[in-house]
Computed example of a mutant assay.
Amino acid sequence: MDKWIELVKAKMSELKITQTELGERVGMSQGGIGHWLNKRREPGITQMNRVLQALGMDFLEVVLVIREPQVTPDDDMPLAQKYNPYFRYPVSDWRTPCEVRENGQPVYVSLTDKQVFQLTDYHARGAAFWLTVAGDSMTAPRGPSIAEGMLILVDPEAEAVPGKLVIARWADSEEAIFRKLDEEGGQRYLVPLNPTWPKALFTDDCRIIGVVVQATARY
Rank of each mutant, 00 (worst) to 15 (best):
Q105G: 03
K180A: 15
A217G: 13
Y189W: 06
R179Y: 07
E148M: 06
A200K: 01
G149V: 12
A215G: 14
F178S: 10
L119V: 11
T139H: 11
D205V: 12
W197H: 10
V166Q: 09
Q214K: 11
A124P: 01
A124S: 11
A134G: 08
T132K: 05
R125E: 13
A160N: 06
H123E: 08
K164F: 01
N194M: 07
G104V: 11
G126A: 01
P162F: 02
I167S: 10
L131W: 03
V211R: 02
L190I: 04
P106D: 06
M150R: 15
A134M: 07
R125H: 10
D172S: 13
I152D: 05
Q118G: 04
D136F: 02
P195D: 00
P192L: 05
A171K: 15
P195Y: 01
R169N: 12
I167R: 09
I177Y: 15
L151K: 15
G104P: 10
G163M: 04
R218L: 11
L190A: 05
I152F: 07
L201H: 12
L153V: 01
Q105Y: 09
P144T: 13
I209S: 15
G163Y: 04
E102I: 15
E184G: 05
R207K: 14
I209R: 14
A134W: 02
N103H: 08
S110T: 11
E157T: 14
R101Y: 13
M150H: 11
L201V: 04
M138A: 13
F202K: 05
S137Y: 02
S145A: 12
P162V: 06
V191K: 05
R218C: 04
D204V: 13
A215H: 04
M150P: 08
V191P: 03
D182G: 05
N103Q: 08
D136K: 04
L181T: 08
A158I: 04
V100R: 15
T196G: 02
R142G: 09
C98H: 13
I152C: 03
Y122D: 01
V107Q: 10
P195S: 00
R218G: 10
L201E: 11
V100W: 15
V211N: 05
V213R: 03
E99G: 11
P156N: 12
F117A: 00
V100E: 13
